[in-house]
Design a protein around this nucleic acid. Sequence first.
DNA 1: CTGTTAGCGCATTCAC
DNA 2: GTGAATGCGCTAACAG
Lengths: 342, 342
Amino acid sequence: MKKGHQVTMKEIAKKLGVSVSTVSRALKDSPELHPDTKKRIVEMAESMNYQYNLLAQSLRISKTKVLGVIVPELTSHFFSSNISGIQDTASKRGYNVMICQSNESFEQEKANLRTLVAAQVDGLLISLSRETKSYEHLHNLYEREIPFMMFDRVTEEIPVSKVTVDDAHGAYLVVDHLLKEGCKRVAYVSGQEDLYISKKRKEGYLKALLDNGKSLEDAIIYVTDLTSKGNEEVALKILSDSNRPDGVFCMIDPVAIDVMLVFKENGIRVPGQIALAGFTNNPTSGVIEPSLTTVSQPGYEMGVIAANHLLDQLDDLVSTEPQSFVLQTTLIPRNSTKKTSL
Amino acid sequence: MKKGHQVTMKEIAKKLGVSVSTVSRALKDSPELHPDTKKRIVEMAESMNYQYNLLAQSLRISKTKVLGVIVPELTSHFFSSNISGIQDTASKRGYNVMICQSNESFEQEKANLRTLVAAQVDGLLISLSRETKSYEHLHNLYEREIPFMMFDRVTEEIPVSKVTVDDAHGAYLVVDHLLKEGCKRVAYVSGQEDLYISKKRKEGYLKALLDNGKSLEDAIIYVTDLTSKGNEEVALKILSDSNRPDGVFCMIDPVAIDVMLVFKENGIRVPGQIALAGFTNNPTSGVIEPSLTTVSQPGYEMGVIAANHLLDQLDDLVSTEPQSFVLQTTLIPRNSTKKTSL
DNA sequence: CTGTTAGCGCATTCAC
DNA sequence: GTGAATGCGCTAACAG
């Protein structure tokens, strides 16, 4: 398909018998131009349906006004909220957004990075895939002084700005809540243990245990690969455990939901026999029955903060000194942990 | 923040005492080049961390290998699935994706269009905002022969390819199901009546009534503005209606869920007193209680088909003759309509 | 006030 | 085999 020919300044200039620079000046509303000339040019441009070519400008000034974003997946509510915040912010500040998803694949993440860099994005916002355990691609980016920052799925190995939530504290809040509601044995269902959030949330889990008169020996930790299948297997394992927990904190809501469905299928009353809580506050958590106690993460706001900070760096409004933004989480107590009243 | 300087062919050429064209040829693996020269250049490029500049290429050939996408919102599961399909497909075929959200605003949609066109995207995939009732911006796009197509939220006013689901048939399936389950009075909760999908789903609703021995006088139609508040108002209106329906088909799942929550708050048994069904098959629908009968729309697949078709057009693999892809929907019967067994 | 020149990074054409 | 010249669309520096 041939793309319709785009009118250029050159053509306007030719039609009007002026030089290209004059057209350029007219269209930029330069003051040092005869009003009549300007008017003629502007009108001609309009009648010819002239459309400014950002590409040429980008090449000239080596700035594309495009932000690259890499997320593990687009369909998760949390990441799409991030992206929504990034996109709205970028748009307000005159930037476009190019988005890639790694689909949780390390190779794909590296490929995404290459293509976004080739596309000359001015900066990058990255949330790492689950598979990402080596960080050479990011080091490389860093050494090439391409501005970027990380959000949510971050690593501490690279000295760039980061936006995260207070994972440990959020986990603390929810585990503390479970214990205060009367749970005696609270388990933690973690994702792969090398994940940043797995570790952080475990920290909060352990601290809550200690603060509530338990010891580290009381910790009960299950690990899932975060697939539905893995989650269901963990749920069954919990049920068959000789010393079954009466409270379960799942690292993320989707896990909690899978676990809850298995519990219900097996006739376990939630929260009656086992109380259950998650993390993220997915839309589903509020409508499932019993409604799921969880911790809300400000996804949209994270995107806004990340984008604004990166753009501030690009526009030299703040130093490039790495900053860490840690957003607060909020406990959302719901029915899945209401031991007391039931 | 100063963006790290990017190495150019010019610098490689200078360092090696060859011409830029030679470097260009070496990096393109041109055959008419001495293997040794080629080797030297390739190695030098690598050691200098050379990164190809897509921008320059784009300017030269007037092709950016970027697809623009405009959706009403990024956070809805359906649209993020579309985007996921578009992004995966584009990526596979060597394209990048620039994404904008209109936030259901007509003005924003027009602004998005302008910026994507200025960015010289090779083609556009558009899903219209709810506010969009005039189509000059699209006519303009069409006249400028910028390849684009529409998906899901389409209009018939522009002769371009479209990807939609069989809305009327999907609605037919679900209403027929409600009636077969024994509902006597089935209502339709519609969005604003000028929306394409409002109309299409109404068609299916009416046809199902007629096919089941009802007349057009039996149609009961409520209209919501699709906000939670509006949905809840409609729910209350349904409850207070003198001749209350015993089956309700909501145009989209989020409406059905809002309505269900109001019903439950008011002690109405679903499906016992009123059966309820939606459309879209959001993740939430499967876990709410009772689980919501709905119609599944292949969101990811729609994105894949749309992107592939547009890219086929761009690559001259198919004619630019507008094509209409109508994807099949599937009824997902769940508990919210199980009149018979309760 | 307006035109000419040069250059952003690259690939292609034409020379040698 | 390789180099020089040209142009993609635009603007800033320099002339006039």
